[in-house]
Write a protein that binds this DNA or RNA. Structure first.
Lengths: 196, 196
DNA sequence: TAGTTCGCATACCGTTGGTATGTCAAAGGG
DNA sequence: CCCTTTGACATACCAACGGTATGCGAACTA
């Protein structure tokens, strides 16, 4: 166990509160529509505290995005690892990603504001480090095993990742609950086409 | 021919200049990084002129986005219509979309800032009205003809549209020129899997 | 326990998107 | 042809925002 000083504990507490409240507000109203004043008011601190923990509004958002990406990546990995067959891992992982992206936090923060606030290049770096990484690894494994046809992994990863991102956003705006099943079916068909 | 008054001509000229310059700046630096002062300076007018033509900065962006979407849609349609076979139209249209999305204007304005500035719902309305519409129509035609397997069009359209959007962004950041060919090949394989 | 650090509050600033008002030339009726 | 009205802007201004500089008191350290 880590013996933490009283100050370190307080610091961590404040930082977590700021992350929690800003995440809630960013997810609810979007990055641009949330002012720092609103964030610090919700967190019960002042702007001084915020800038003591984060260099800018964008970096606060970055920390929030990292947290969201981490959670999505873990959910995908957990679902995939529950399968034993590599092919089943791919399919289950993709469906888990689609389910995880149904969360409004994920929608607004990870899919909408993320690329616009940090720039696409930086967003993609985070994406690759967490959620999209599992997809690329699964595809590589399946290619090595000869289960799916040999081809460059990177473009295929991007195609599939983008397909799921967009589908998740569409599902969120959809009223018909049957759309989820239809999307999963269409996605499964696309994945099936990869088989050698 | 439309006889235009001197004032109407001047008005149109100013509006076009504002659209041209703001599009250039939005594409180059992103929506958030461009101030209205910079736009009106580049256009040679004042903020009064800008607000006489557009209700807000977001609406100016919206007009720019509509223009970009329109152009992409026309390019896709033109390429697709040059083919006679419906299946060839689909494939050619998809490849044309990928090529059109290589334009930096399209990247930043249509794919990055668009959803963040206007919200995803409104962005998708514009997308559906222009570029994505052709994709949905092509899929519908091919299903009716029995060329591709019968299934709901909407989710498949979103999956493919998202796949191409993301792939285009990835291609822009890519250094290897062979990545385009690899992406087109992977996309073609995915499309091929739709055949009945 | 005296001095230092540090987590945060307070006060302040430049810039930004947005608005209210002024201005002057073109349009239009008599 | 003149007089009034309209409209396409320019000018001046404002509140709010992100960001910074400084102050302060409690927790650590020697």
């Amino acid at each position: 166990m880590t013996t933490r000083s009283q100050r370190a504990a307080q610091r961590e507490q404040t930082r977590r509160t700021l992350l929690r409240e800003s995440r809630r507000l960013f997810a609810a109203h979007g990055y641009a529509a949330v002012g720092l004043a609103e964030i610090v008011r919700a967190a019960g601190v002042t702007k001084g505290a915020l800038y003591h923990h984060f260099d800018s509004k964008a970096e606060l958002f970055r920390a929030v995005l990292e947290q969201v990406q981490q959670e999505v990546g873990e959910r995908v990995a957990a679902t995939a690892d529950a399968q034993d067959d590599p092919w089943a891992q791919l399919v289950a992982g993709c469906h888990a990603f689609l389910a995880a992206s149904a969360d409004p936090d994920v929608q607004q923060i990870m899919l909408i504001d993320g690329p616009a606030v940090l720039g696409w290049a930086e967003w993609r770096t985070l994406d690759e480090a967490t959620s999209a990484r599992h997809l690329a690894e699964a595809l590589t494994t399946l290619m090595a095993a000869g289960t799916i046809v040999e081809q460059p992994v990177a473009p295929l990863t991007r195609l599939l990742s983008g397909a799921m991102n967009e589908a998740a956003l569409w599902l969120a705006a959809s009223a018909d609950p049957g759309d989820l099943a239809a999307t999963q079916a269409a996605l499964s068909r696309l994945l099936e086409s990869l088989r050698a």
